[in-house]
């Protein structure tokens, strides 16, 4: 059967989640939900890259602790980040004594790692799997854009890479929200070449995944308490709403974008937050809390990723997008 959507039979549970964010993010709209807010972006390390690695290490241990497990109980780690060769995740994995699978889906990495982890757990191959994703404003800025001290202006469509790491533990034993479905997305490219306009580049992939998901699962937007995209930002989420309306599906008040909601208006982030840390930290803090409280019964979490690199952009390539969706249902549903 050719179908992009997986329905999990045993429905892996998220038994622990942990989020860690930078100081600017700690003043944003979700400030009361994060587990840990760093006092400065260096996190006591010498470079920003080392700080990002330490954030991942701390997020993983934090999630394991909140799942009331020991590090030795974990069977495998699925993680990814934005840096070249996903060094932050790989070097963080060096500190742990369990196998590691590196995944890369740009800003969609959180959903990708959770979907892969769910398959591993649901298939009965591993008992406890931990997922982790992180991004750091300063490391992303120097890799994708300009040095931090350069006196340039950010274009109005640009977004602010979130400094943060989110991690969660998936298992068949224990209590917590269940992952019931996952839809893997195709890479979609509608020819946007402006690297400052990620939202527009990723919105078509979000539309594609949403349509596929609704078709495969025979659901409509009303079946979900929350449909959350990752970091389309203000512009991108408006485009997604327009695109869906063209296809005859209306996204209502239950649709939200993590990036758009992330920062307060006076924090000067233009179109909102971005980066894998954006969706990861919102999911592991705010959305998890609401699922545990039972305020949300069914959530469609579908972060998008822009799969660009500076080399490809300089060679004149456009920006392809990808979007993976997972459905999480609250414990008692």
């Amino acid at each position: 059967m050719k179908c992009e959507t997986i329905k999990f039979k045993k429905q892996p549970r998220i038994i622990g989640a942990y989020s860690i964010v930078g100081p600017k993010e700690g003043q944003g709209n979700f400030k009361d939900y994060f587990d840990y807010i760093m006092k400065n972006d260096f996190f006591g390390e010498k470079t920003f890259e080392k700080a990002e690695r330490k954030m991942i290490e701390n997020a993983i241990t934090g999630a394991i602790q909140k799942a009331k497990l020991k590090v030795s109980d974990i069977n495998v780690l699925v993680a990814g980040d934005l840096l070249n060769q996903i060094i932050s995740s790989s070097y963080a994995a060096r500190a742990f004594n369990f196998p590691y699978l590196g995944v890369y889906g740009a800003c969609s990495t959180m959903a990708e790692s959770m979907a892969v982890a769910s398959i591993l757990v649901d298939g009965g191959y591993f008992e406890n799997v931990v997922c982790c994703t992180a991004s750091h404003f300063s490391t992303a800025e120097r890799q994708y854009r300009f040095p931090l001290e350069l006196g340039n202006q950010r274009p109005p469509a640009s977004q602010w890479t979130v400094t943060g790491a989110g991690s969660c533990v998936l298992s068949l034993n224990g209590k917590g929200p269940r992952i019931t479905m996952a839809t893997f997305g195709k890479v979609i490219d509608w020819g946007i070449t402006d690297v400052n306009n990620m939202g527009a580049a990723m919105a078509p992939s979000a539309m594609q995944t949403l349509l596929t998901h609704f078709e495969n699962t025979k659901t409509t937007p009303d079946d979900y308490d929350l449909i959350a995209t990752g970091d389309l930002g203000k512009l991108g989420s408006e485009i997604l709403i327009d695109l869906m309306e063209d296809k005859g599906i209306k996204l209502g008040l239950n649709y939200a974008d993590c990036g758009q909601m992330y920062f307060r208006r006076d924090q000067n982030t233009l179109c909102g937050g971005s980066g894998c840390g954006c969706s990861a930290t919102v999911f592991t803090s705010y959305i998890m809390k609401k699922l545990q409280d039972g305020q949300y019964k069914r959530v469609l979490f579908m972060p998008t990723g822009a799969l660009l690199s500076t080399t490809a952009t300089q060679q004149g390539e456009s920006v392809p997008g990808v979007c993976h969706a997972i459905v999480i249902e609250s414990e008692e549903g």
Binding site: Q153, N197, A200
Partner: peptide, 17 residues
């Protein structure tokens, strides 16, 4: 055509300084 149409749509929608 789709690339052109989409780029046109986005350019009209993009916030300006």
């Amino acid at each position: 055509e789709r690339v052109k149409a989409y780029n046109k749509y986005v350019n009209a929608k993009i916030p300006k300084t």
